[in-house]
């Protein structure tokens, strides 16, 4: 380690302070809402709650946990997320893998055919009318299939496959292994980082997905959590909405809103830090030019 001069050390501390500031800004809204969700409604009304709960209690969380509409929506979204993520990973793999073979005839055309959809899309209304014609509207499948394959994620996976040496594939082929066997035995076992990354991207996408549910799903029992939350947060008159949304008690106050937001956030906050070293690689691969 070099000996750092006085100016350098002052510079270091300025940078550390700036980063502490960034951390503070990033966490501030979360800490604030956590404090509010754990405070008593009276303390909230007196504007006393900043970053630390006043009148600590877990009533709001108990209330939300007992609420059938909310817990079902969480469960339903978890099911959707699991199915959607699996389907997306399979689709992404079987799309990206053949495209790395130079032997694939028409590879350029197929590539262009796929990439084109990334730059030009038909728009919301044509998609809506198509789903209507396919009679998929308001059915659970509409939250799984229409956006199950992302070209961007496919490119990430392809870039990763390209980074696996061709010689591995070629020697397996000489031994008589077909493309599918090579995929299962060689490519997939080596692809944990990219699979973890894309699993996270797809899962977060479904968990946070809102627009497709708002537009294509009108059946209350199939509402994913974000749509339910949106309706909760925007409840102008709590009593009216409490009845509409099936909340049994009309005492839908601010702490319950905040507890609902916290609950829906926790699954993601628990998962993403552990996948950090993977998704950094994945996000970087996405930037590689096709």
């Amino acid at each position: 380690m070099r000996i750092r001069s006085r100016t350098q050390r002052i510079g270091d501390w300025v940078i550390v302070l700036l980063c502490v500031f960034v951390i503070f800004i990033c966490l501030l809204p979360m800490v604030n809402i956590l404090a509010r969700s754990l405070s008593s409604p009276e303390a909230l009304m007196r504007n006393e709650v900043l970053l630390w709960p006043k009148g600590l209690n877990f009533d709001a969380y108990q209330y939300v946990l007992k609420d059938k509409t909310y817990t079902w929506s969480m469960t339903w979204t978890a099911i959707l997320t699991a199915i959607g993520m699996t389907l997306s990973l399979v689709m992404t793999t079987i799309c990206a893998y053949p495209l790395i073979y130079p032997q694939l005839k028409g590879r350029r055309i197929i590539n262009t055919f796929i990439i084109f959809t990334m730059y030009f899309n038909a728009g919301t209304i044509p998609m809506y009318l198509l789903l209507k014609d396919l009679t998929m509207l308001n059915k659970p499948i509409v939250l799984i299939v229409p956006y199950c394959l992302s070209v961007f994620n496919m490119i990430i996976m392809k870039s990763f496959f390209y980074s696996i040496p061709d010689s591995l594939r070629e020697s397996a082929q000489i031994d008589g292994a077909g493309p599918v066997l090579v995929l299962v035995r060689i490519y997939l076992p080596l692809s944990t980082p990219v699979i973890a990354t894309l699993a996270l991207f797809y899962a977060v996408g479904r968990w946070n997905g809102f627009q497709d549910a708002l537009m294509f799903m009108n059946v209350r029992k199939y509402y994913p959590i974000q749509l339910l939350l949106y309706n909760l947060i925007n409840a102008i008159s709590s009593i009216e909405v409490a009845i509409q949304e099936g909340f049994s008690t009309p005492g839908l106050n601010e702490t319950i809103k905040t507890a609902s937001v916290m609950f829906a956030t926790v699954p993601i906050l628990l998962v993403y830090p552990f996948l950090q070293r993977y998704f950094i690689t994945g996000a970087t691969l996405g930037a590689i030019k096709e």
């Binding site: 980063c19 960034v22 951390i23 990033c26 966490l27 501030l28 809204p29 979360m30 604030n32 809402i33 509010r36 977060v204 968990w207 946070n208 997905g209 809102f210 974000q226 939350l229 949106y230 947060i233 601010e254 809103k257 905040t258 937001v261 829906a264 956030t265 993601i268 906050l269 993403y272 830090p273 950090q276």
Partner: peptide
Amino acid sequence: VTQTVAYMPHFLSWIIISGLARQL
């Protein structure tokens, strides 16, 4: 640590963020 914390907002939906913003 700074990186982990700074990545966090990216994983929140805009519904959550608007909920946070309305409180804040």
